[in-house]
């Protein structure tokens, strides 16, 4: 088990190195000049040249690359070219907000998606199955920013249950829930749609297995068969999907954060892209890569918890 984790972490370092290299060069291939983004379109050539020198952009690319990699290794991710503040501080300030939103959405997605998927499979080709399938298809095809605006229109404008802009600094449980509710529902329902479909098809496969028929024949209670024997065996594809779709969830969280005006990585990356803030973009890619690598590792480890037959070597 330890050897497995160490091996995976070793691979993670290689992945991170590859991603950092690609990101470093891609952001520099992008047309657009950070100096102009910072100084505005009235800046003179002299001012632009001076700023480029100050930002180190006049150095040869390989020098910039070595400096960047060296910095990352010793934990110095540089300062934002636009705000002048350290990249790591900027990211860490808003990362908890994005993690909070993503994790709560994931839990919401699982809590809604798994039972619906099971119910749909058990009632296959009956009304509940049709309704669940339709609803999950709707959830999959709705862009996150459209559903976000619809949620705001209904719950913030018509019913006035929630504010349009979150205060972003809630200290009590009530305030935090209020800030989180609509964005988490928006993302959670999309996640639930994915999970429902996977849980349904995995359950359908398990329901046709011989041991399930045997369990019925033995006269086991219906609930025991479904929840204890079927669901546990159907969970591996669900966990795989949850891990895989976390990337999509983070992507959708960018849009959700913008529409609900929550602080988070989403607003940070949009600003950094618009202003060609190379250092910030690089820092954010490190964070995104780390998150994806960690989630994949956790997904792999979860398999062993669900199915004791799986051994790590």
């Amino acid at each position: 088990m330890t050897a497995f984790v160490l091996k995976r972490l070793g691979f993670a370092v290689i992945t991170l190195f590859a991603v950092l290299t690609i990101v470093f060069f891609i952001v520099r291939i992008l047309p657009g000049d950070p100096a102009m983004a910072i100084l505005g379109d009235q800046a003179s050539q002299e001012a632009l040249v001076a700023l480029r020198a100050r930002l180190g952009l006049d150095q040869p690319l390989y020098v910039q690359y070595v400096q960047f990699l060296g910095g990352v290794i010793v934990g110095d991710w540089g300062v934002s070219m636009v705000s002048g503040r350290p990249v790591i501080q900027e990211i860490l300030k808003v990362l908890p907000a994005t993690l909070e939103l993503t994790i709560v959405s994931l839990i919401l997605g699982a809590v809604v998606g798994v039972p619906l998927g099971v119910w749909s499979a058990v009632r296959r080709n009956k009304l509940p199955d049709y309704i669940t399938r339709m609803a999950s298809l709707l959830g999959l095809s709705f862009p996150a920013f459209v559903s976000a605006v619809l949620l705001l229109l209904v719950f913030a404008i018509q019913l006035r249950w929630f504010p349009v802009i979150s205060s972003g600094q809630g200290t009590t449980l009530g305030e935090r829930l209020r800030d989180l509710a609509l964005p988490a529902i928006n993302l959670g329902l999309i996640m639930a749609a994915y999970i429902t479909r996977v849980a349904r098809s995995a359950m359908l496969e398990v329901l046709n297995q011989d041991y399930v028929r045997t369990a019925y024949a033995k006269g086991l209670a219906f609930a025991t068969i479904i929840w204890r024997h079927c669901l546990r065996n159907a969970m591996i594809p669900v966990v795989t999907v949850v891990g895989l779709y976390l990337g999509i969830l983070i992507g959708n969280s960018v849009l959700t954060e913008i529409v609900f005006n929550r602080p988070g990585l989403g607003k940070l990356i949009i600003g950094a892209l618009n202003q060609r803030d190379y250092t910030m973009l690089q820092g954010m890619m490190v964070i995104y890569t780390l998150i994806v690598v960690l989630v994949n590792l956790l997904t792999d480890l979860t398999y062993g918890l669900i199915d004791p037959r799986i051994k790590y070597s």
Partner: peptide, 19 residues
């Protein structure tokens, strides 16, 4: 001075009276 990049959200916040 609130930073609200989404045009739709800004308009809705004004409509709801928060802004």
């Amino acid at each position: 001075y609130r930073y609200i990049p989404s045009d739709a959200s800004r308009d809705l916040a004004f409509q709801s009276g928060e802004i």
